[in-house]
């Protein structure tokens, strides 16, 4: 926020009216956001509107959205929760990293299959 643009002019609490408690606690930094409808509602608070416009271009993680909006993640989480509540946004848990399959488990499955035969 600093650097060329200098000191921030608008504090973060203006985005949510001072709320930092999201209405759902399933959102984290990696939650993927995507637009749920192509139509933007007419009356949205400016920050929610900006977020809604931002994700119209494609899926975006919550942390990325926060960076674009130059807002703290905690605040963006509230915005996302509100937009999800009103149905303009889809939030999806992040795709977990591919894991090495459990070899013993696979062997037991194989054993079971052979036992059937």
């Amino acid at each position: 926020m600093s650097g060329r643009e200098g000191r921030r002019l608008v504090p973060a609490y203006m985005a949510t009216g001072g709320r930092a408690q999201p209405s759902r606690n399933t959102l984290d930094r990696l939650t993927l956001l995507s637009a749920a409808s192509s139509r933007l509602p007419d009356r949205l608070p400016p920050a929610e509107r900006q977020l809604a416009v931002l994700v119209r271009g494609g899926a975006l993680s919550l942390a990325e959205a926060a960076a674009y909006l130059k807002l703290p993640v905690s605040v963006v989480r509230v915005l996302v929760a509100d937009l999800v509540d009103t149905g303009f946004l889809n939030a999806r848990a992040p795709i977990p990293l591919a894991e090495q399959h459990d070899q013993k488990f696979l062997e037991r499955v194989l054993d079971g299959l052979r036992a059937i035969r």
Partner: peptide, 25 residues
Amino acid sequence: QSKIESMQHRYDTPDLAQDLLELDL
């Protein structure tokens, strides 16, 4: 203000963030 702002960006625990927003105000 700078301190509070940097903390807002660093910590995203809802309770802590709530307090930071109030401090900011």
